[in-house]
Design a protein around this nucleic acid. Structure first.
Lengths: 108, 108
DNA sequence: GATATCTTCTATAATACCGAAGAAATTAAG
DNA sequence: CTTAATTTCTTCGGTATTATAGAAGATATC
């Protein structure tokens, strides 16, 4: 659509929450905790790439840390346009969930 | 994902709101009003079909009404599973938008 | 070189998006 | 009256974007 997809939204919020420590693995952990569902590695990085390409986050490769697995992390950070996009869906959400009549359930 | 997509959510809410009068055209109007964006005919019916296939709405073709354009309408109604799915994303949304630190904006 | 931690790559399925074509009724023409 | 034009709605078919998944690749420590 023209709005953030739900995934993009969740991912942005997770990055926001993680602050200085947002990279692939922690982000994956964060959305897993949040949703209680399984997220494949690929699914996470896919969204991350898209957010980057869309210019909603900035990214920087950190220095390799002195620990067993050496590959250096790619850190993410929400930038202005990202916050704006988030605000947009928050407003939409708010408008969407009002004026709902009593749910007349159907049998089945 | 495993949750309703944003479109599916908006569409379900619109159907819910429209109550007895939810069919292609009014639903399209409703989501257009809500989002302020253009929705093609096809985009609307596409989601509607998906919701039906997923068993989140029930549908019934109405009797042709005595008015100019004769084609009878296909009415939609949110059913139990649909309300449940909506509830799920509402909860998710609520959980997602908390514990957010001060947005430390980046320049650019 | 074995092991650990992370990211990139490649492939497939599901969603989103769009307008032309099709269906079925009413109204207008002759 | 019979047929053609008009109106209202939905179905169809094709393309682009998102979502899913895990294997492969990179780079550090032990």
């Amino acid at each position: 659509m023209k709005f953030l997809s739900r995934q993009e939204e969740l991912m942005l919020l997770s990055i926001w929450k993680l602050d200085d420590n947002a990279y692939g693995v922690t982000i994956r952990q964060s959305v897993t905790d949040l949703t209680g569902k399984y997220w494949s590695i690929g699914a996470v990085y896919d969204v991350l790439d898209r957010l980057t390409k869309k210019g909603l986050v900035s990214t920087v490769v950190g220095d390799p840390v002195k620990a067993r697995g050496g590959k250096s992390k790619r850190f993410y950070r929400v930038i202005k346009s990202g916050f704006k996009a988030l605000e947009e869906v928050r407003d939409l959400q708010q408008k969407a969930w009002v004026d709902l009549p009593e749910p007349a359930f159907e049998k089945k």
